[in-house]
Simulated assay, not measured.
Amino acid sequence: MEDQTIRVQLSETNKQKPKSDQLIFGKTFTDHMFVMDYSDPLGWHNASIVPYQPLTIEPSAMVFHYGQSVFEGLKAFRTKDGEIQLFRPTKNLERLNHSNDRLVIPPIDEEFVLKAIKQLITVEKDWVPDAEGTSLYIRPFIISTEPYIGVAPACHYKLIVILSPVGAYYKEGINPVKIAVENHYVRTVKGGTGEAKTGGNYAASLKAQELVGKEGFAQVLWLDGVEKKYIEEVGSMNVFFKIDGEVVTPMLNGSILAGVTRDSVIRLLKHWNIPVSERRISMEEIRQAHQDGKLEEAFGSGTAAVISPIGQLTWEGEDLIVNEGKTGEISQKIFDTITGIQYGKMEDPFNWIVNVETKSTVKN
C-alpha cells in the first residue's frame, strides 16, 4: 500500500475497565479497533484507528455465503517494569498471509500491519492488565465484504484488529485434561484448509466437541481424514508426546496448522538438547507406548493456554492414563519458560520479544 498513514479517531466516551481478577477470555473488548479496506484497483487503503463499534455490512456480503475469512491470535504482555511486549508477532502475520493465499485474499503488508497493531496498543495501553498471568489478546481478521452472490474470490475486503484483556488461563496452575480420540468426524484433510487459520475449520470441529463434552471430556484428539489412523491436532491446538525420552509431534502435512507456540516448543527442546522429531504418529503407536510404559507425557500447545497437559486419552473404549494424570516435567518447564519470556522474567535467547513503545502521544 502506498499510503502509510494511520488516521486516528479517539472515542469520546471510554468503557469502564474490568478488574484483573474478573477477566473472562473473549468477553471484554477495548475502546478502539484498527480497520483497513481493500478494493480493486486501490489495494489496501484507509488505515484507521477508530472507536470499537458495530460493522455496517450488507446481507449479501460474500463472507456470509462463501466463508472467505481468516484470522490470527496473539498477545501483548505487561512486564514487572510496566513495559508492554509482544511474543513473535511477525510469525503470526506471516501465517496470516499464508492463510490469505489459501483463501485467495490479497496479501497484507506485514510490516505495516505490525506497526498498526503497535499503535493500536499504544492507544489502548491502559487496557493491558498487570495481574499475574493476564494479557491483552490481539485478534486481527479479514473478511470479504463485497455484496455479491456468486462463488468467486471477492474484490472487497476489510481487515480489522480488535483487542481483549484476558485473565490467566490457569488460575490454579496447569492441570491435565481428559481427551477423547475422535473416530467419526474429521477436522480437515490434506488439500483442504487445515493449514490456514480460517473460521470454517473451527465450525467443522464444533459437533465432535459438543458430543465429547457431554461425556466429560475437555476436547477431542483429531485423526487424519483419510485413514483415521494418524494423529493431527488436539482441539484447536498442536499436540506433542514424550515417548521413551523423545518428544514427538505430528509433522506439518497440509492439514495441520503451523502453530507459533508449536514452533517455539520445538526450538526450546532443541535448545535444551532434548530429542524432538516431527513425523507421522499413529494412535496405535501411542497405545503401544502406553502399554510398554514408555508414554511419559502428552500436551497441547497454543496461544491461549501455551501448554495444556493431557492426563487421559480415551480411544475405542480404552482409557490411556498419561503420567498418572499429572503434569509432566517437560510440560511444566516449557510452560514456565515461554511465559517467563513473554512477561520479561526470563532471558530471551531467540529474540522472540518485540517491544511496544507506549510513550508516544496519539492525536486525532
Rank of each mutant, 00 (worst) to 15 (best):
I143M: 03
S144M: 03
S144A: 14
P147M: 03
P147A: 06
P147L: 05
I149G: 13
I149F: 15
A154Y: 05
A154I: 05
H156A: 14
Y157E: 05
Y157G: 06
I160S: 15
I160M: 15
I160D: 14
S164D: 04
G167T: 00
G167K: 00
A168T: 02
Y170S: 08
Y170F: 14
E172I: 05
E172C: 11
N175L: 13
N175F: 10
N175T: 15
P176K: 07
V177W: 10
A180C: 15
E182Q: 08
R187F: 03
K190E: 14
G191F: 13
G192Q: 11
T193D: 08
T193H: 09
A196N: 14
A196E: 10
A196R: 11
K197Y: 06
K197G: 04
G199I: 04
G200T: 04
G200H: 05
Y202C: 07
A204E: 02
S205F: 00
L206T: 00
L206H: 00
E210Q: 09
L211A: 08
V212P: 02
V212S: 02
K214N: 11
E215C: 15
G216V: 10
F217D: 09
A218H: 14
A218Q: 11
A218M: 10
Q219T: 05
V220C: 01
L221H: 00
W222D: 01
W222F: 01
L223T: 01
D224W: 09
D224L: 11
E227T: 15
E227F: 14
K228E: 05
K228A: 07
I231G: 07
I231S: 05
I231L: 06
E232D: 03
E233C: 15
G235H: 00
M237C: 14
M237T: 09
V239A: 11
V239S: 08
F241S: 06
F241N: 08
K242V: 12
I243A: 05
D244N: 12
E246K: 08
V247A: 01
V248D: 02
P250T: 10
G254L: 12
G254Y: 12
G254Q: 12
